[in-house]
Measured scan of single mutants.
Amino acid sequence: MSGNGNAAATAEENSPKMRVIRVGTRKSQLARIQTDSVVATLKASYPGLQFEIIAMSTTGDKILDTALSKIGEKSLFTKELEHALEKNEVDLVVHSLKDLPTVLPPGFTIGAICKRENPHDAVVFHPKFVGKTLETLPEKSVVGTSSLRRAAQLQRKFPHLEFRSIRGNLNTRLRKLDEQQEFSAIILATAGLQRMGWHNRVGQILHPEECMYAVGQGALGVEVRAKDQDILDLVGVLHDPETLLRCIAERAFLRHLEGGCSVPVAVHTAMKDGQLYLTGGVWSLDGSDSIQETMQATIHVPAQHEDGPEDDPQLVGITARNIPRGPQLAAQNLGISLANLLLSKGAKNILDVARQLNDAH
């Protein structure tokens, strides 16, 4: 009898209710805020589980004197976190989706994509230029951005401005803007500013005609071990179906173009009346040469937790077992079709030249 009692006690200790789920994140304040929001949602869904947040620095956090596009290494903000995932030191990792490459290392998958916040870019102005827009900034004003995508589009749109690289986390960039006289304004992701509670610093939100956004911008991705079915089931509740389908289309477009950090590629997606609209573009580094096109596809946005595919093969690095396969494939095909259209119009040449120029500098 006593033996059975011990077995029952052991089973209770090993039951999922007692389990601590370890969540990996970057150390920056924004990353911690984003991770806290994901953990809060998981806690609400699984009140019996405990969650421990483990923060670590990544290569991208450490190399702050070089433009991201020049470092010449993929997975700048993800490699150390993936290493911890691989060694079973954490069970899942919360990322900004735009930091996750469209091809993940073997053994990993994006197990959830959370509801997207505003994906557009924002302009934050130096205190002396508050009330201005990019259009009304004085001639030769210097605007800071760490992104080739932003610089290429904005140089084309605002030729009277000069664009220079600015690195560091959000706090560091804002301090550089406010305390030094080098920059009249800087460009940042609206979602990051909003998550930090800095709505009052948003001086201008850039519309798609001015600057399309990065693939996955404004959404959070939760990376897990691809074979860890328990954790895949656990994080599945975080999937937002519309965000998922938009981001599958965007990531398929980028992957098929073979774009990345070192080339200016941008997108804009919208879901309306059962249609998914995808606009994508590529630019030369100075913005003088560009190709942009829009395509659409009829896609039914499923309700969360309709029964999805059981075999769960990944699409552009994403596993969404609780979302039907048909809409996911339709979104992926839309991204591939748009990429093929741009490639047929000469996108590869623009991107190759951009890559060579970026590598040469």
Rank of each mutant, 00 (worst) to 15 (best):
S37E: 10
V39R: 08
L42N: 00
K43S: 10
A44W: 10
G48A: 12
G48W: 10
L49Y: 15
L49T: 13
Q50E: 15
Q50Y: 12
F51A: 07
E52L: 04
I53V: 11
G60W: 09
D61Y: 02
I63V: 08
L64P: 13
L64F: 09
T66N: 10
A67M: 00
L68S: 10
S69R: 11
S69D: 09
S69T: 09
S69F: 08
K70L: 06
I71R: 05
G72P: 14
E73K: 10
K74P: 06
F77W: 10
T78F: 00
E80V: 07
L81T: 09
L81W: 09
L81R: 01
E82L: 08
H83S: 12
H83R: 13
A84R: 06
L85G: 01
E86P: 01
E86F: 09
E86K: 14
K87S: 13
E89V: 11
V94T: 06
H95S: 05
S96A: 13
L97M: 07
L97T: 15
K98C: 06
D99W: 02
D99L: 02
L100Y: 12
P101W: 01
T102R: 00
T102K: 02
T102L: 08
V103Q: 15
V103M: 11
P106I: 09
G107S: 10
F108V: 07
T109Y: 04
I110C: 09
I113V: 00
I113P: 01
C114N: 10
C114L: 10
K115T: 12
N118H: 11
P119L: 03
D121M: 03
D121S: 04
H126D: 09
H126R: 09
H126T: 08
K128P: 02
V130R: 14
V130K: 07
K132V: 09
T133C: 12
L134S: 02
L134T: 05
L134V: 12
T136V: 10
T136H: 13
P138L: 10
G144A: 11
S146Y: 06
S146V: 08
S147F: 00
L148R: 09
A151F: 10
A151I: 06
Q153N: 01
L154E: 02
K157Q: 10
F158E: 04
F158R: 09
P159T: 09
L161A: 05
L161K: 09
E162L: 12
F163Y: 11
F163A: 12
F163V: 13
S165N: 11
S165P: 14
I166S: 07
R167H: 07
R167S: 08
N169P: 02
N171K: 12
R173F: 01
L174P: 00
L177D: 04
Q180P: 08
Q180Y: 11
Q181A: 07
E182G: 15
A189E: 03
A189H: 00
T190N: 15
A191P: 01
A191R: 01
Q194R: 14
R195W: 05
R195Q: 04
M196T: 06
G197R: 10
W198Q: 07
H199Y: 14
N200R: 04
N200F: 15
R201G: 09
V202Y: 08
Q204Y: 08
I205N: 10
I205S: 06
I205R: 07
H207N: 05
H207L: 11
P208I: 13
E209R: 09
E210W: 15
E210L: 13
M212I: 14
M212E: 04
A219Y: 04
L220V: 11
L220E: 03
G221I: 13
V222H: 00
E223A: 03
E223W: 01
V224D: 01
V224Y: 04
V224A: 06
K227S: 09
K227P: 01
K227F: 03
Q229M: 12
D230R: 13
D230N: 11
L232G: 13
D233K: 10
D233S: 11
D233A: 07
D233Y: 08
L234C: 11
V235G: 04
D240L: 01
E242Q: 10
I248M: 04
H256E: 15
E258A: 05
G259W: 01
G259P: 01
G259V: 04
S262E: 15
H268S: 04
H268F: 13
T269S: 04
K272G: 02
D273A: 04
Q275P: 07
T279E: 07
W283E: 02
S284I: 15
S284L: 01
D286H: 09
G287T: 00
S288W: 14
S288K: 07
S290H: 00
Q292S: 14
Q292L: 13
T294E: 01
Q296K: 12
T298P: 05
V301Y: 09
V301G: 12
P302Q: 05
H305M: 07
E306V: 14
E306P: 07
G308A: 11
P309K: 14
E310W: 04
D312S: 02
V316D: 10
I318Y: 11
T319P: 04
N322V: 11
P324I: 04
Q328N: 02
L329Y: 06
L329T: 15
I336K: 02
S337Q: 01
L342C: 05
L343R: 14
K345N: 12
K345P: 02
N349I: 07
I350W: 15
I350H: 15
I350F: 15
D352M: 09
D352A: 12
R355T: 05
D359L: 05
D359K: 04
A360M: 02
